[in-house]
Amino acid sequence: MDSHLRREIILDNYQEPVNRGLVDDSSYLKTNTNSESCIDNLDFMMKVVDGKISDIRFDGEACVISTSASSILINSLLGKSVLEAKEILHNYQDMIYEKDYDKSLLGELEVYDEISKQPNRVNCALLPSVAINNMIKELENM
């Protein structure tokens, strides 16, 4: 991806992330990511209706990478079934870890395809995917 476009997408999502701000609603699943390896601290909440993700929200203090990744990831998961979401998350994590992955599933998330070159940023990029995976696991265990 062209580095200019990459920067623009990341910055747009950092400066005006989607769904920033939590709601007081007990029908949501909730999780916090207080990463051990960095200082990002984000809360996530997710609502699933009839097997489909109807809302994901987040808030907290975090760096440009994890904030923008939260925003882009939320955008790409909204309206998807839990099964589809798992597939996207899986491919996203494979991309971050430099494994083979299906590009067609990731859309704008591809802006992080070179993040592994900055090892101290890998966890920032993974943070929202870990959080959302946690909530999906919790849902499946209910």
């Binding site: 960095c38 200082i39 990002d40 203090e61 975090a62 760096c63 440009v64 904030t67 900055q118």
Partner: peptide, 8 residues
């Protein structure tokens, strides 16, 4: 600017 972005 988030502190970690500054240090990076």
């Amino acid at each position: 600017v988030f502190a970690q972005d500054s240090s990076v």
